[in-house]
Nucleic acid binder design. Structure first.
Lengths: 157, 157
DNA sequence: TTATGTGCAAACTGTTTGCGCGAAG
DNA sequence: CTTCGCGCAAACAGTTTGCACATAA
């Protein structure tokens, strides 16, 4: 087994992008090179990419920082992309496909995917107990990831 | 039941501050007016206050922005204060007393206190299943609070 | 063609830093 | 007295915005 970080399996990049494009069309938005590229990158790399990371990736393709920010905002508004604040002040974005929960490692700063159903019992409990309706998709659990807890990598064998 | 938003009961502001001061002394840090004031404010107001809010509160007392940021950083380092990123990019701080979990309401933007043991089952499950050690104190659940789900406040009224 | 998106540069918010004086120890 | 913390102002990172030109529809 590959074990470690196999986490993010992308459901279907092409389908995801098409879906997103349909949404844009639906909202009367134009399909431009910048939007296409951004969507492709986000659909293929399931990690959390910061706006600045995306900007510098796209800079080489002649797409301007400001455009990246504006497009990201647009995509978030369209619901095809989600965002969250990273410790440090930057904003990270990822495609709004496959529901999963995120874990932020305080040690390495990384983001790991956690099973989306992890919070299910909590969701119910908080809804009935506190009247608070949790949205796992937007929530983050903060802690220490496996690699940082066990740097050597494998314990038994 | 008094119900609604009694949430944050402060454990003991004076004790909390004394404790924090002891920690500072212990670390060879000096006790200054800025640190004292910051600690007092954070101990008494259990909400999340942003650095800028704290800065403007203390500005009237002749304490400079930069000092607030530096002091906050120091207190976080000493473990007497915790921080988290707010949607929008700012950082919110609160005293590191009474463990509780936070819920961010996407509707009103507020922060509500949730029972700290809410995540207990999740913590265990993630530790054994994913190797991820969750720290509820630093984690946030995002969703919709009671008041925003039920604005009128009481159904048959 | 027409309306919208983009590049550019400058404004802005939130945060950090070098420097010299003042205060805690 | 000595060392550390503070005020100040300027630097910084990340993000937003007004304007004129390019481009999708």
């Amino acid at each position: 087994m590959t074990g470690r970080h196999e986490a993010h399996h992308v459901d279907d990049p092409v389908g995801v992008v098409s879906q997103a494009l349909a949404t844009l069309r639906n909202r009367g938005e134009r399909v431009t090179r910048a939007r296409l590229r951004l969507l492709h990158i986000l659909a293929e790399r399931h990690d959390h990419l910061t706006a600045e990371e995306l900007a510098s990736l796209l800079h080489g393709e002649g797409i301007h920082r400001a455009t990246v920010y504006r497009t990201l905002e647009l995509l978030v508004g369209a619901g095809t992309v989600t965002h969250r604040q990273l410790p440090g002040g930057a904003t990270a974005y990822h495609i709004a496909t496959s529901n999963h929960l995120h874990g932020h490692c305080v040690s390495c700063g990384g983001v790991v995917a956690l099973p989306v159903d992890t919070l299910d019992p909590v969701v119910e409990r908080l809804r009935v107990g506190q009247g608070f309706e949790v949205d796992p998709n937007r929530s983050s659990l903060v802690g220490t990831c496996r690699d940082c807890r066990d740097p050597v990598g494998g314990g038994p064998g």
